[in-house]
Computed example of a mutant assay.
Amino acid sequence: MFTLTQITVDGLRIDSTAEVDKASLKAIESAAGIYAIGEVFNNNADYVCGYQGSISGLMNYPLYYNITSAFSSTSGDIKQLENGINTMKSTCADTSILGSFLENHDNPRFPSLTADMALAKNAIAFQMLADGIPVIYQGQEQHFSGSSTPKNREALCTSGYNTAATLYKHIAKLNAIRKLAIEKDQGYLTYNAYPVWTDEHTIVMRKGGNDTQVIGIFNNLGSSGNANLTLLATSSGFDADMEVVDLLACEKFTTDEKGDLNVSVKGGVPMVLYSGLQIEGSGLCES
C-alpha cells in the first residue's frame, strides 16, 4: 500500500461516483488534498451537476452524449449539441473543471460508430477545445475502434505507439493550440465557450477574450463534404483587415473592412481560427 504523500499526482479520478455517498466524496477529496474528478455515468445535466457540491470535478457525460450524437454521422444533431452546451453552463456551478471526453473504457469507441476520419477529427477537436479539462483515452489517438466492453479496452502496445498516426498528430496540434490560448489569455480557461452560429451541419464556437479568441468551426459533413460560410465580426469578434490563421491547416485569411470573413470547409475537416499576430514565436504555422 501507499499514500498520496509518497507519490506525486495532481488529481484523482473516482470511479462510479454516483454509487458513493455524497458526504463521503467530499471527505475523500478533502483528505487527499488535491483535485478530484468523479464519474457520474448519466446524460442528465441536473443529475450530474448536482454532484459538483460534493466533488470538484466531474466527467462531462452530458456533453459526451451530445458530441457523439452530433458528429457520429452526417445526419447528427447539431442543435442538440448547441442546446446541451448552454444547458451545462446554466446548470453546473463551474464547467471549467469538468472533464471533457469522447471515449472511455465503458463506452463504444467513436470509430466503432463511424470510420469517417473527418468526423473523428471534428469530434476530437470539439472535445479538446470545449470548456474543462480534455481527457484522452489511450488508443483514441490510434483510431482504435473497439465497440462494447471488453473490445474497447485494446492493448495500446498493438499500435506500436505510433506517433505518426493521423489522430496522434491531430491531438498533439490541438493540445498546442490550447496551450497557446492559455498563455495568451489569462482568462481563457474560465471563459465559457459559446455557440456563435449554427446550421444543420455546422457549429461555430468562440472561447476567449478579444484579440486572443479561439474560433472553432466544427461540422458533420463527412470526408466528402464541402461548405462555404461567412463569419460575421459580430459573432467572431475579429477586427477589420485582420490576419487570421486556421491553426489546423496553417491557412491564412484576411477579414474584410467590417471584420467579416468568408471561409470554405474542405473535406469536412474542422477549422480553428486565431489571430495571426498572436502566433509569433509559438511554433504554430510560422513557416
Rank of each mutant, 00 (worst) to 15 (best):
V204D: 05
V204T: 12
V204A: 14
M205Y: 02
R206S: 09
R206W: 00
K207D: 11
K207Y: 10
G208W: 10
G208E: 10
G209I: 15
G209V: 13
N210M: 12
T212K: 15
T212L: 10
T212S: 13
T212C: 13
T212V: 15
V214N: 10
I215T: 12
I215M: 09
I215H: 10
G216E: 13
G216W: 08
I217G: 03
I217K: 05
F218R: 03
N219L: 05
N219M: 02
N220T: 07
L221M: 08
G222V: 07
S223C: 06
S223Y: 09
G225L: 06
N226S: 14
N226H: 09
A227L: 09
N228I: 02
N228P: 00
L229G: 02
T230I: 10
T230K: 07
T230C: 01
T230E: 09
L231K: 08
L231D: 03
L231M: 08
L232K: 14
L232T: 05
L232W: 09
L232I: 01
A233S: 15
T234E: 11
T234V: 13
S235W: 11
S235I: 00
S235Q: 15
S236W: 01
S236G: 04
S236T: 15
G237P: 05
G237A: 04
G237Y: 02
F238I: 01
F238T: 00
D239I: 04
D239R: 11
D239L: 13
D239N: 14
A240M: 00
A240R: 02
D241E: 07
D241Q: 12
M242G: 02
E243A: 10
E243F: 09
E243M: 09
E243Y: 14
E243L: 09
V244Y: 06
V244W: 08
V244P: 06
V245K: 05
V245S: 06
V245W: 06
V245D: 00
V245C: 01
D246F: 06
L247T: 12
L247R: 08
L248K: 03
L248S: 07
L248R: 07
A249G: 08
A249Q: 14
A249L: 12
E251M: 12
E251R: 14
E251F: 13
E251Y: 13
K252N: 13
K252E: 12
K252T: 15
F253E: 03
F253P: 01
T254Q: 14
T255W: 09
D256F: 09
D256C: 05
D256I: 04
E257F: 14
